[in-house]
Amino acid sequence: MLLYKPKKSQGPKGNRLLVSVTVLGSAGPIRFVVNEEELVADVVDTALKAYAREGRRPVLGSDINGFFLYCPSVRSDALSPWETIGSQGARKFVLCKKPRTEGMEGDERSGSGRKGTGNWKAWIPKSLSIKISSH
């Protein structure tokens, strides 16, 4: 008599994806496997934990609310934390710190050149010009 034994690979529904998350200012991307049904907020949390576990610099912390996740190949605005990661149809993402708005002095805000729009493509050229001009 044979008993039906379900396969272990038939876990949660959805496909598993190997995602690559690049943190601005870090040496290279972090790669890990996620379920395509996972929320963006969960992917950010996993990326921050993997980043810290690997001892990467700069130190980012663990507050997922302080970061934006972008999908540069699909769109230029930040992903909603409540979207599923598989809805983008991409596997490469960029993780950026949100601009600080609380407790910033007027001098700091004018020196950064950012308006807090959340568009990382607009921020990169400005940050490069600041670094180049300071030499």
Rank of each mutant, 00 (worst) to 15 (best):
P125N: 08
F68C: 05
R16P: 03
G106Y: 02
L18I: 11
V74D: 00
R75K: 04
P99T: 14
C71D: 03
S134A: 15
K92A: 15
G11V: 11
P29D: 04
A90M: 12
S80G: 00
P99F: 09
V33L: 03
S112T: 11
E37A: 06
L69V: 07
L48Y: 04
R100D: 10
V43Y: 02
S62I: 11
P29M: 04
S76V: 00
S112W: 02
T84S: 12
F32R: 06
G61H: 10
G103H: 09
K8W: 08
K92Q: 14
A41G: 01
E38G: 01
F93G: 03
D63R: 13
A50C: 12
G106Q: 04
R31G: 00
F32H: 07
E102M: 05
A50T: 14
T22Q: 15
N15P: 02
F32Y: 11
G113Q: 09
S112M: 07
L2T: 10
P58Q: 08
G14K: 11
K115S: 10
G116T: 04
H135C: 08
A41L: 02
V74C: 00
G61N: 09
D107K: 07
D45Y: 03
R75S: 03
P58T: 08
R56T: 02
L17E: 10
E36M: 00
S9D: 12
N15R: 14
L128Q: 15
T22K: 14
Y51P: 04
K98C: 15
K13V: 08
K126S: 05
R56E: 01
L39C: 05
V23G: 04
T101P: 00
L3E: 13
N15S: 14
K98P: 09
P125V: 05
R91P: 00
I132Y: 11
S26F: 03
K126D: 02
D63K: 14
P58H: 08
G66I: 01
S127M: 13
S127I: 06
R91Y: 08
G66D: 14
Y70I: 02
K131P: 00
T117V: 02
Y51M: 07
N65R: 12
Y4M: 12
S20D: 13
R16H: 15
